[in-house]
Amino acid sequence: MFNKFIEFLKEKDRNTPTWLKILIPFLAFGGLAFHAIMAFITAFLITAWFGNPLPVFGFNQSPDQPIAFPHTIHAGVGKLIVPKTGKPYKDIYGNERVNDSGEPLTGLGMDCTYCHKTVTKEAWAGVPPVELCISCHKVIGSNESQELTKLREFGLSEKTKGPIKWKRVHRMPDHVRFVHEPHIRYLTSNPKAIQNKSTDFKILDNGTVEASQVCTTCHGQIAEMEKVTQKEPLKMGQCVACHRANEASIGCETCHH
């Protein structure tokens, strides 16, 4: 069979050496594969340059946290149902999020600043200490939940007590200085500059908005995220574009020193 095939190749075109005839299909497929890989790498680099890299090879900007903390339950508003099916949300283990009577959970609509306390005062927003979680979760939530068991180990059990080592999601490179306070101050009093407004966005009577409403500009709809992901690229272009539009300083020393 294979010999016949070789014979056939030899007959077909006598000028081309046989080994080359055999090699050609391999070269062709190799070339295709090579081009496919190159195209993939180029696409990866281009997206990484203009925004966030494609979510492959662990570049998905949402690391697994020690406790799968859902912003939906705490900061979201309304019933936690999937709009298409009307069924309750599923947590990362595939269990439906229902309360004790089997109804879909409703988001607590907590203010972002209840947990991220320093965001209106300091450069950093901060993540709450485990004591704050425990103030509610000492009693709230079933004992069967794996995540809450882990949380209580961090907060209550004498042996394993200690801070939770959350993983950073948003991280500026080392040569960039970012400060939350002036942004929250400016955006709360200038609601026009807020981007990606949430559905429950509303302006108060005195023309300002609550601090919780401005975070969407740079973080996307955190309140609707089971797991925090970086939605905005937060590259220099985005920062400077907004600084230009709002007459904030754009000298390099503002962000790099």
Binding site: K121, D174, R177, V179, E181, P182, R185, E253, H257
Partner: peptide
Amino acid sequence: VTVRSRGIMEKCTMCIQRIRRTTRNAKK
């Protein structure tokens, strides 16, 4: 303050981080 890596020139900034922080706090 940024930690300067190898191959980079550095110099006195008059502590620009303090200047900015103080002006920012005054504004706040």
